[in-house]
Amino acid sequence: MRPGFEPDAVSASDIITRFQLAYPAAEGDPGFSLSVDTRLPGRGITGIFGQSGSGKTTLLRCIAGLQQSDAGQLVVGGETWQENGVFVPAHRRPIGYVFQESSLLDHLSASGNLQYALRRARPTPPAQLYDHVVALMALEPLLARYPHQLSGGERQRVAIARALLTHPRLLLMDEPLASLDSGRKHEILPYLERLREEFALPILYVSHSLDEIARLADHVVMMKAGRLAGAGSLAEVLGDLHMPLAPDDERCVVLEGRVTECDPHWNLARIEIPGGHLWLANLNLTVGQPLRVRIFARDVSITLHAHADSSILNRLQASVAAISAEEGKALALVQLRIGSSVILARVTRRSLADLRIAPGSQVWAQVKSAAIVS
């Protein structure tokens, strides 16, 4: 795993982040230090992932200018915000910031909160931005309501819209779904997906939820104890055997594909991925639609031959790239390469021995259609 995002061709839109920050230890407090030196992509959603206390929010506050580091450099799209005595204060940085709590102005309606953001935006946003954002976040029925009249998910949608209406060059989101229950989270996630698709805006998304990162992020930064533990594309990070993003039974990969066929008789859809195709339940999918699918390692089995007499529809020819198996433990994690795609399989060490599977083995990966998450 690369220590930071270093693209083959450096883009002028990238975000250079170098911060050194230390809080001394005190009685009952071990102290904390942040040491980050990396280049983040200036496009798409970068998920900043890690457990509580790993430094995610501190990093975001340094980027926002809310926390001044002992030594630091921040360059956003070629513009220096911090370096060698230069420090652009937070109120002059063209950023939108969405916190865990919506932090709406209670005395203003939803519309009033949005109009307040428009008045403060510099430079003045395009005239059509307001209507676009209101439509994107489906806020028309909520505009006349005050924050106390909105659900938690509705308040957060207004907060996201308010951040967008400041016409930012960079959007920071600090665990925006952490205060919501499961139902409200699932209500708001589709809006965040639309935001990724419709705005050419770099977004730094802090979360300790692998589910959110897997669904939203294009790139991932892994934080641990104030340091960068690894970074790369979503596929690289999730497919890395040695990147402990989740317990073994929650390990998964995300594949980007496209719908190439819909079978109305069986209500299935065929998804082309690099190296093969997958069948899954058709939940209102259409031919040509891009689709992101998640496959859990626990739902992948390995065979030496393609078995046509199986209830499992998805059989993918693969080569074994690597195996992570600890002596004394029953289960192993296997990294399988399918064309340019990588998936993981969680199987017993006994099965690997019985089938004589080792790195370089040519095998077939089987994935249940019912287990694929889209």
Rank of each mutant, 00 (worst) to 15 (best):
G226Q: 14
S209V: 02
R292P: 07
Q128I: 04
T80W: 08
S310G: 07
V300R: 01
A214C: 03
P274Q: 01
A110H: 01
A127H: 05
D249S: 08
I45P: 05
I63M: 09
L352D: 04
G44N: 00
L255D: 12
L40E: 08
A231Q: 11
S179P: 05
A9D: 07
L316F: 12
F5D: 15
H148A: 02
Y97G: 00
L201K: 11
Y146T: 03
G257F: 02
G360P: 07
A306Q: 15
Q317W: 13
E256V: 05
R349A: 08
I312D: 12
I338E: 02
R119T: 14
M137H: 02
L180D: 01
A321L: 06
R194H: 07
R292V: 09
I323E: 04
S102L: 02
P24W: 12
E140N: 10
L59V: 06
N84I: 05
L336P: 09
P244Q: 14
T38N: 02
P141R: 07
A214S: 12
S179D: 09
A161R: 03
A200H: 07
A200D: 15
V98T: 00
G153L: 11
Q51C: 05
A71K: 15
N284T: 11
H219R: 02
N282E: 14
P147T: 00
Q289R: 06
R346M: 07
L129V: 09
P247R: 10
P3V: 02
L104W: 07
A229W: 10
I45N: 01
N314Y: 11
P41D: 12
R196Q: 09
V367W: 04
S310H: 04
L180H: 04
D299Q: 08
A64P: 05
A371G: 08
L150F: 00
R61S: 13
V10W: 05
P24S: 05
L336M: 12
K368H: 03
G230P: 07
L210R: 13
R356V: 10
N113M: 15
F5M: 15
E83M: 00
D181T: 09
G50T: 12
I271D: 01
L172G: 00
D218Q: 06
P244K: 11
R196N: 05
P94I: 01
I372K: 05
Q20K: 08
G4I: 14
D248F: 04
K224F: 01
A214D: 04
V300E: 00
A71H: 15
N267P: 06
P30Y: 10
S13C: 09
I343G: 05
L192M: 09
A214Y: 00
I160D: 07
A371F: 11
P202A: 06
A229N: 03
A71W: 14
L189A: 02
V334S: 06
W266E: 14
M1R: 08
Q317V: 13
H91Q: 03
L201N: 09
I372F: 13
V367T: 01
I323K: 03
